[in-house]
Write a protein that binds this DNA or RNA. Structure first.
Lengths: 132, 132
DNA sequence: CCTTGACCTTCCAGTGACAGGAACCCTTAT
DNA sequence: ATAAGGGTTCCTGTCACTGGAAGGTCAAGG
């Protein structure tokens, strides 16, 4: 199967698939004309990667997940640990963004948003931390 | 004032300050020995940038905010619009992360995390979208 | 046989916002 | 004189791609 069909089936851009090959995540054989000839197993792997990436796992995490996936003697604890660590990072990130959102939301609400120059948003950026 | 003192006062690494100069956000004059000689106005600008970055504004947004800050005839509406747009992006990002978190959280909870290979996390990554 | 268009290939550059490190200069204290 | 602790520039690397140029391949139509 050629790359554009694989792209559709895996839900990944062709460029991304080439990149994944470059970094060794998939190793499709080649036709005599030099085209990548994807097997079903390659498509399956790529779909796996697509879903793992959609859950925010890094490429290196994905590499590990693929290895675990293919290792039939894996311990589910290893997978769970990886996923848990990632979950914590996401939760940290959410908390951080929520904090930004709360501050920003207040600032936006406090700004008149008219044609006058007076602006609490700029005032806050200029003065926070240095009370004058 | 030398860069490391400015770094402390503005709450930014020296490397970052040099980078901000490189991209034209600050333009400190130089001493005869080649050292950057920061003025109070430079420190003030850098502190402004530090706070804007902490709220997640991009560098280009920061550049615009600085321009607006220094333009005493600005309309607060322009500032508010920029901040609102940024707020929406943050909210989108939060929603996206929360969706990841919800999925991941379920998967992690459903995984035994012992020494057996059976793992719902890997199963989900392999099979989601292709019901078998 | 030729062309057209849609594929495919590789390779190079750019993204955002820095961080790390090498190699070297300046200042101050001992 | 030297050593420590500033400062400087310049180059590379990060992360996960994306865009684009230059060129090979294939199937269909005239």
């Amino acid at each position: 199967m050629n790359i554009s069909d694989v792209a559709k089936r895996a839900g990944l851009p062709a460029k991304t698939i080439r990149y994944y090959e470059e970094i060794g995540l998939v190793k499709p054989p080649r036709d005599t004309n030099g085209y990548r000839a994807f097997r079903e197993s390659d498509v399956h792997k790529l779909a796996f990667l697509s879903r793992a990436r959609a859950l925010g796992f890094t490429i290196e995490d994905c590499r590990t997940l693929l290895t675990l996936y293919e290792d039939k003697t894996r311990a589910s604890a290893d997978v769970k640990e990886l996923a848990s660590a990632h979950l914590h990072k996401i939760e940290d990130k959410i908390a951080q963004l929520q904090s930004m959102r709360d501050t920003l939301s207040e600032l936006v609400q406090s700004c008149a948003g008219d044609d006058r120059p007076d602006c609490p948003i700029l005032k806050d950026l200029a003065a926070r931390g240095s009370p004058a």
